[in-house]
Write a protein that binds this DNA or RNA. Structure first.
Length: 606
RNA sequence: GGGGCUGUAGCUCAGCCGGAUAGAGCGACGGUUUCCUAAACCGUAGGUCGUGGGUUCGAGUCCCGCCAGCCCCGCCA
């Protein structure tokens, strides 16, 4: 078990700095400890490479209380630091800069040693947690009888990536597909089909998914316009939820059909997912309502059973309700979500015993989840140390800046999007082959086009901070230049090329090799970039922001491309050659692992 | 009316616990290939961080007001 070298260095430095500050200013330290956690060295990664590896800003806030200029304070701290042999073993002489920053640069041999450690480590310096309670990641969640469209892409890809990161860290992850297979929509659809296409309700594959989508649209329209249809649909839902065999059979057929279509998309995108739809929680709904009642949280209002939220008021200043049972007796999505929360945190045979539950849905549902989470907490269904998190992402907007709506008909189907991505990647590849006079067989072209096209789609989505809305654009999403998946894949390909031309990447990673020797600034830049990986993974695990990983991998690729451009590897003399090969090896491993955590496979040639 | 999110270069976006001269990509302009894949590299131009206050040694970042866009607000999910 290697631990997390860079993180450990940061912690070591922090405690050394704190000790130095306390020796320099014992009175201030005592006072700070009295008031709170004590003196804070404010250690942070250096904001610019020329400042070294770390900067400590802790001298500045002391200027006022101590009545001394901050640079003088920094000098006193530095003096104490230089008296610490452990510090001197780690760092070069600290520099004081600007108004009173203390800049720290790690000793080169220390950095080289860290690279060496990671070369021999499968996990590249990222520690594995002890196996603990499961983490539930609820993502993708398409609706039965609807086709997956671009809106589902974000949830699917972001959720998958978060699950991969959590799994890599060693958490047992439950990837749950909370498909919309229950509720009013089925009442609508079954009622409509009974009238216009009854065969679809008792014969498998009597209609295909495209037809089903059309029927759904018609049913939705009738539901919005026709009060009688609305009532019949609601009755149908109650029958279904009550276990009526005819309704159940029809429902089962519809689900099977959609499920097969979803699976095709998941297979293409290499998404692993356990289906556990809304219907799964049906047997628990009554108890949810009963227990809310027993807890004294339930209020009947206008015939509906509600829990009124604390701290959230609606139009008239009245608290906002979460409706858990409709006036017609039917349950709705809030009830299902409550049952799901309870089940996921619940103890083993009747639950998942999770400690962290993550929902990857669009930001439009933020209010809904805030309400449901509050009710679950007040009902006592979230354990003390349980984390219940909504991971919202921005809406996919049309060219008009408005939400892309299913009903509007201008939705881009996910399968069409993926097809287009692969086609564009293929056309681009064929053009390159032509220009470069290369000749490749058809299998190679298909393989590369598929990988590049799908990677471009995934990366386009993941590389953006998920919280902001984005305007859907084929050109932007499928761009193959700049900060895109192909740029990262290309860096891997370049390293594979070095290996093909005689660079032994296996040997440099074996134990007992010569110490690494670096001299060029491009080498040091790459070393420093490589050593950030573990901190990035820790951050993604905590913040659930895959774009941080994307940014890192892009920067690593940039630094590598500069290195590759300006420093030759294979033609270098020893020991530079082996040391550079080692950097190539670790870069490739880091990119492969990092891209893998984004759900993107790499290539040897492209 | 209430609530949430967003507003940073021509466009699309990063910007971590408040830290030094606000960064990328695209687009524009100019350059680099007898050498490991040029899907690359280097350079130039481009900014009142929506706006007005406040907090403090220091604010794109925190607090308040305002403006703009999007989303949500009782029996759809």
């Amino acid at each position: 078990m290697v631990g997390d070298p860079m993180l450990r260095i940061a912690e070591t430095l922090e405690s050394q700095l704190r000790a130095a500050m306390e020796r320099a200013f014992p009175d201030a330290a005592a006072a700070a400890r009295q008031a709170g956690p004590g003196l804070d060295p404010q250690l942070a990664p250096a904001s610019k490479p020329e400042f070294g590896d770390f900067q400590a800003n802790g001298a500045l806030p002391l200027a006022k209380p101590l009545g001394q200029p901050p640079r003088k304070i920094a000098e006193a701290v530095v003096e104490q630091l230089k008296a610490d042999p452990a510090f001197n073993a780690l760092c070069q002489d600290p520099q004081i800069a600007g108004p009173g920053f203390i800049n720290l640069t790690l000793k080169p041999e220390r950095l080289a040693a860290e690279v060496q450690v990671r070369l021999g480590d499968q996990r590249l310096g990222v520690p594995a947690v002890e196996q603990g309670a499961p983490v539930v990641v609820d993502f993708s969640s398409p609706n039965i009888a609807k086709e997956m469209h671009v809106g589902h892409l974000r949830s699917t890809i972001i959720g998958d990536s978060l699950a991969r990161v959590l799994e890599f860290r060693g958490h047992p992850v439950l990837r749950l597909n909370h498909v919309g297979d229950w509720g009013t929509q089925f009442g609508m659809l079954i009622t409509h089909l009974k009238q216009v296409a009854p065969e679809a309700l008792n014969t498998a594959d009597a209609v295909d998914l495209g037809d089903l989508v059309a029927f759904y649209r018609q049913a939705k329209q009738r539901f919005d316009e026709d009060e009688t249809f609305q009532t019949t649909s609601r009755e149908e839902v109650v029958k279904l939820q009550g276990g009526d065999p005819v309704s159940l059979k029809a429902w089962g057929l519809l689900c099977d059909q959609s499920r097969r279509e979803f699976q095709k998309i998941y297979d293409r995108l290499d998404i692993r997912l356990s289906e556990r739809g809304e219907s799964f929680y049906n047997p628990y709904l009554e108890r949810v309502v009963a227990d809310l009642d027993a807890a004294g949280l339930l209020v009947v209002d206008d015939g509906a059973r509600c829990v009124f939220l604390e701290g959230v008021s609606g139009k008239d200043g009245k608290p906002l309700p979460v409706i858990v049972q409709k006036s017609d007796g039917g349950f709705n999505y809030a009830t299902t979500d409550l049952a799901a929360i309870r089940y996921r945190f619940g103890a083993d045979p009747e639950g998942d015993a999770a400690r962290r539950v993550i929902y990857v849905t669009d930001a439009g549902q933020a209010n809904h989840f805030a309400g449901v989470f509050q009710v679950a907490r007040r009902a006592g269904w979230v354990p003390e140390d349980g984390r219940l998190e909504h991971v919202p992402f921005g809406l996919v907007q049309g060219e008009d800046g408005k939400k892309l709506k299913t009903r509007a008909g201008d939705t881009v189907r996910l399968r069409d999007l993926l097809d287009e991505a692969v086609e564009r990647a293929e056309a681009d590849l064929r053009r390159r082959l032509e220009e470069e006079g290369r000749s490749e067989d058809e299998a190679f072209i298909q393989q590369v086009a598929t990988t590049v096209g799908l990677a471009a789609v995934k990366y386009a989505d993941l590389s953006q901070n998920r919280i902001t809305n984005y305007q859907f654009s084929f050109d932007r999403m499928l761009a193959l230049q700049g900060n895109t998946a192909p740029y990262l894949l290309y860096a891997v390909v370049r390293i594979a090329g070095i290996a093909r031309k005689g660079g032994d990447l296996e040997a440099v990673a074996s134990a007992g090799s010569e110490p690494l020797r670096f001299a060029e600034p491009q080498e040091w830049a790459l070393v420093r970039e490589l050593l950030k990986f573990d901190a990035v993974i820790a951050e993604v695990e905590e913040e659930l922001l895959p774009n941080r990983l994307c940014t890192y991998l892009f920067e690593l690729s940039q630094v590598f491309n500069r290195f590759y451009d300006q420093v030759s590897v294979l033609k270098a003399e020893e020991p530079a050659r082996s040391s550079r090969l080692a950097l190539c090896r670790l870069t490739a491993d880091t990119l492969k692992l990092g891209l893998g955590l984004l759900g993107i496979p790499t290539l040897e040639r492209m």
